[in-house]
Design a binder for these strands. Structure first.
Lengths: 338, 338
DNA sequence: TAATTTTGTTTAATCGATTAAACAAGGACC
DNA sequence: GGTCCTTGTTTAATCGATTAAACAAAATTA
């Protein structure tokens, strides 16, 4: 790259000190600086095409106006949509976002946090993985401003914005039961993640509450590693029981996407043979032959609020905000008898 | 945040100069430093939980190990998938990615470039918008390392990685013609973007080459602003002609997604009444009742190569690499007569 | 007129690293 | 014993900003 123009270049050209240039370009000491000089400085700055070196500025001011976004996979539509909201909200406040995906690996998220802190981000927005409690505790101890989104730890007092997963699942199952479905399956993750466990719990509770005996075989927890194969196997299992399921719930959009591909291949009629509900809302769910009834998380709100909370924390607030927003159940063809 | 540990803290605790600490932690002057001292320094660094201040380091070394990714919308699956590839590739080389979406606004992309350059990114990966030529020329003039992806300008000699859009569209149309479809429509963007215009050109050329007279009414170019409404209108128009189309091609995944929703609502049989082809490959296209024949761009390759080219440029290479990769036509139900 | 205030600007320290160059002490060589 | 290397470490400049404090000159007040 070309040698860059710095304050000194402007200062020399105008014949003043760098301090004065800095004051002018930052609009400080407004009343004190002679108008003609200020004008001249601004003129020369534009003429030389001056560009603030944020790195130098950050070193001195101890603020990078950067926030780090850590998610499991930025290419998951949930994450990329969230990223977009956060980007916009950050931008409004002159922040820039750096991001990283940890693929549910504790080691990778450790490394990401480390990298981002080295880069002196002003704060972090994290959708933490399983077993990330020690990570989070460390951040608290180091007094790093951060907020968790989507996923959180009920036992740790941190900022977080998420939905009420229990109620969301509960509501979805009640809707299924109300629509006449009786043998409701669910594919979920074998995980310690609280948000997922809450979905499981809601699924179970709604059935018990409505006099449906909870059948262990109907809640299949798969691993993230072999997602596609595990989903297929789970569906096959639940359909091949002597009492096959008549409704199926997907705990996440990733499970749903693979589940739908399989169900499609099996030429199963939805909802006649099998009703379906999924968490999240994606284009893929819309375009399935029976558009899916889904639990639509208020992504825009989550992203906006999370960013807001983080920026407040960065500004020094030590309030802790914990928010469980309601998710909306969008009822569509996949659970409606014709 | 807590006061941070810096080199000086380690130096004082060990009783040496900061220079020595820096040498040790960066593994420089290997042979020269007494082993016991080096060990002690490393020990104290861990003990104090030292964290390099990358900002300070960057200021001195003039390298941030950051690359800026500028796309129209990070939440578009094409962009987020690309972002993920770039992230992984960057990470392998110890780079971090900052991103920004410009929503096809020239002004916003100008601002993003400005912000990123102020932050001293080492280089940029850009999927540039319409009329961005002056932007790009400016980057060249300032000798900023950058590479364009997906979109590029044929008249400007820059690094780029994209597909061969003309051939991709041409091939898709030939496939349609070969499958017996005769009145092929296309919904594209009214834009100056070369990659889109190439798709249009391929669409037209393939028909002419195969003795199908090109009908202007069958290529409808919409605007990005009212995409959903425009897509619906375009489809209606092409279906309501006295000679309705029997096949339709979507120029991008965004057009396709909205188009499919509409076609679904119209209960059109695919491919019996209307065959469909789309650029890009997304889950949504897979889950449509007739999985879409699509032009699958080699995203992973594009992302990897683009990153590689950029890193080379950052390292000082002034080679210009221009790559048009072939895209694969995935033939699926939406164009196959039963 | 002297003291004080205001206006306009500069000086110089600082942020936390890196790194060329200087320096000191010990060992090898003639 | 003097010269020259080696080895091991420190000094000090530097990156490009910010900003408290100092300073000088002009204007106001007493």
């Amino acid at each position: 790259m070309n040698r860059k123009i710095c304050l000194k270049d402007i200062a020399e050209k105008v014949g003043v000190s760098t301090a004065l240039v800095s004051y002018v370009l930052n609009n400080k000491k407004e009343g004190r600086i002679k108008k003609s000089v200020a004008e001249k400085i601004r003129e020369v700055a534009t003429e030389l095409n001056y560009r603030t070196n944020q790195i130098a500025k950050s070193l001195k001011t101890n603020r990078t106006y950067t926030i780090g976004l850590i998610v499991s996979d930025i290419s998951n539509p949930f994450s990329s949509n969230l990223a977009r909201i956060i980007e916009d909200e950050a931008d409004k406040n002159n922040y820039t976002v750096i991001f990283g995906s940890f693929d549910e690996s504790l080691q990778r998220s450790d490394k990401l946090i480390d990298t981002f802190l080295n880069r002196q981000v002003d704060g972090l927005i994290i959708a933490p993985g399983e077993n990330a409690t020690s990570q989070v505790l460390l951040l608290m101890q180091q007094k790093v401003p951060f907020v968790l989104v989507d996923r959180y730890f009920p036992d740790i007092r941190t900022n977080y914005v998420a939905i009420d997963n229990y109620s969301a699942a509960y509501g979805a199952v009640e809707h299924l039961i109300g629509s006449g479905f009786k043998r409701i399956g669910m594919i979920s993750f074998e995980t310690g993640l609280f948000n997922i466990k809450e979905r499981d719990r809601g699924y179970i509770a709604a059935q018990e509450k409505n006099g449906i005996e909870y059948n262990e075989e109907c809640l299949i927890k798969i691993s993230n590693e072999n997602l596609p194969a595990d989903v297929e196997r789970a569906i096959n299992t639940m359909l091949q029981k002597e009492q096959p399921i008549d409704a199926l719930m997907f705990a996440t959009n990733a499970i749903a996407t693979h589940g739908l591909k399989h169900i499609k291949n099996l030429h199963i009629k939805v909802p006649e043979q099998l009703a379906l509900v999924s968490f999240d809302k994606t284009d893929a769910l819309d375009l399935f032959y029976a558009p899916l009834t889904c639990i639509d998380q208020p992504l825009a709100e989550m992203g906006r609020i999370a960013t807001k909370i983080l920026l407040d924390a960065i500004e020094g607030s030590d309030a802790i905000t914990q928010l469980n927003l309601p998710a909306e159940l969008l009822i569509r063809s996949s659970t409606m008898h014709q």
